[in-house]
Nucleic acid binder design. Structure first.
Lengths: 325, 325
DNA sequence: GGTCGTGGTGTAATCGATTACAGGGGAGGC
DNA sequence: GCCTCCCCTGTAATCGATTACACCACGACC
């Protein structure tokens, strides 16, 4: 491996001068070009480990996500990447698999590796997160609120549930069920709260048998939808509060057994294989959430940010599905 | 931040002893317990940057992927993670967006950060890759062959195309089209070669108008399928050579306009929303490919690996689709 | 009892960059 | 002509860990 010493020797200058050229400080043009020639000739790139040991932070940010197989999060990741790249930062992605310990593990690595900052969609409560923020590490939380005093980019989940449910009400449906995630998942319960509120406001029932707390994945959506349609009084419309349970619900409908029901989904379905003209999608634009979060992170890394803030990421109006693009 | 010096001072030993305790070398029990107490009390974790500067490699491996939004690759990523975790390594994921320059950038980072190794699904030819391998960095290439002398885990793509096409032939179809990726994409052309071979063997036409080189994404599949079905002599069966064009093709079929055609897909559809009983899937099990690649990487990191080898990842028999699980 | 070997510990060198500090040289002002 | 001041450069300290090397104490063996 070529080191800065080799470049300095070849260019006939000191290591300090090489470092200065590489970091854009003023240097006599003669020396500068000599250094650049030497750098090119040796194909030298600075050792980032040494650099970040000395500088006490690297040019890498960590993006800690609970489920890398969920298109919502991969889309969010793309947003973070785009901003990071233009800011000269590299993104490394860590998958916690919804496991709090794994999350702590990765947050600790980000800290120990002196990463410039962290964007995290928390799998659960994290003592370490607060500690990072206290020590003035750049941290932005996305998608899932935490009580700590850190930057956060969130949806107004109650409002999402309300708006989606209201759309079904306005369509004339009278028995509107809701498939949401586990009780321990705050976004799931908040969206269900919105659904309940919209129904009550419209004078419609929002009874227990119309609300299913499913596992928040595709199979959860399938099971829940099948259960709802098999009930004595099946609903004439169903709200799925995230993309994955939406996929599951759609599959059951596509099977065509049992009664029909209008479906509404909070989320997007980039890999849907059926026509879904008939389904309402309340698209969430996770990519834009990623953009927002990354911009906030970059500002904080640069020291341009003030006290921690919570940003509510807007979502677009409820849209009729058509085949998603 | 607490440093090893602080621990040493509190425990009344030298930094060398602390380091030895933390790295499992033999130390007098008295001192060892004193050190452990001090570590606990201070909540000390070693600074990984300093450690990897000295050791000249870190405990992190990079997984460099061309498209993080493709479920094939996220599934592969899960496989890599599972092996890495049990080996005590952390995985960071880098998205090249099919861009060779971005790929070089991330490979360089992996090198400069002294990462323990790299698993990469190459977006294209990479001079840097060969250089890494030459310098005895642990490198494993997955999914897309490269000419360099490095470990590789690949499918037998010609065979995949052949088997998938033969299944359609055995079904009694006589005019079998193929939607594959761009001519510059080796896996795409190899699978198409297999399709052509199977058709010729069966005495069926494999003419140019039956082979569409589409963009290898969902919209490419849609366009290609629409084009095929609108032809003067539409095919009675279509082979889609990857998961994404398969999704696009299915969408067009689901629209129900135009003639029907039997569909076969090389790949899996974890987010399909329709019943696909009627479609043949040749599942590829990218997760297992990730497991294999990560195991090879770990062996190489530990210095247990010999000369570079190419492993052909087996795939299961062609299966009738049903709703994927 | 003396010598040798062994196992455990501490001191200090080391990894490869950045940067505080000191010194040298040239320009400008009196 | 001399003195400042400023700008650039080089030397060496520094980041925080690991580890080569030297040393010491103790036990075994002759």
């Amino acid at each position: 491996m070529t080191r800065i010493k080799d470049v300095a020797a070849l260019a006939g200058v000191s290591t300090a001068t090489v470092s200065r050229v590489l970091n854009g400080m003023t240097v006599t043009p003669d020396l500068e070009s000599a250094v650049r020639r030497a750098v090119d000739e040796l194909g030298y790139t600075p050792n980032r480990t040494a650099r970040s040991l000395r500088r006490r932070h690297s040019e890498v940010i960590a993006l800690v996500l609970p489920d890398i197989e969920n298109p919502f999060f991969t889309s969010l990741a793309r947003g973070v990447e785009d901003v990071a790249r233009t800011a000269g930062l590299s993104v490394v992605l860590c998958n916690t698999d919804e496991d709090v310990e794994t999350q702590e593990h990765y947050l600790r690595i980000a800290d120990d590796e002196n990463m410039a900052g962290v964007v995290v969609a928390p799998a659960g409560p994290s003592p370490f997160l607060a500690r990072l923020a206290e020590r003035h590490r750049a941290v932005v939380v996305v998608d899932r609120a935490v009580p700590d005093d850190v930057d956060q980019v969130l949806f107004d989940n109650v409002d999402l549930g309300r708006r989606a449910a209201r759309t079904l009400v306005d369509q004339g449906h009278r028995r509107i069920a809701c498939i949401t995630g586990p009780r321990e998942t705050p976004t799931a319960t908040a969206r269900a709260d919105g659904w309940r509120e919209a129904l009550r406001t419209a004078g419609l029932p929002a009874s227990d048998e119309l609300l299913v707390h499913a596992n928040y994945r595709v199979d959860g959506g399938e099971t829940a939808m099948a259960q709802l349609l098999a009930a004595a009084h099946p609903p004439d419309a169903v709200l799925a509060t995230n993309n994955l349970v939406g996929v599951g619900a759609l599959r059951v409908l596509a099977a065509g057994e049992g009664p029909h029901a209008q479906l509404g989904i909070i989320g997007d379905l980039p890999f849907a294989t059926s026509r879904i003209d008939d389904t309402f999608l309340l698209r969430l634009h996770p990519r834009e959430m990623g953009l927002t979060a990354a911009r906030m992170l970059v500002a904080r890394i640069r020291g341009e940010a003030g006290p921690a803030q919570r940003v509510i990421q807007p979502s677009r109006p409820v849209m009729l599905g058509s085949t998603p693009s």
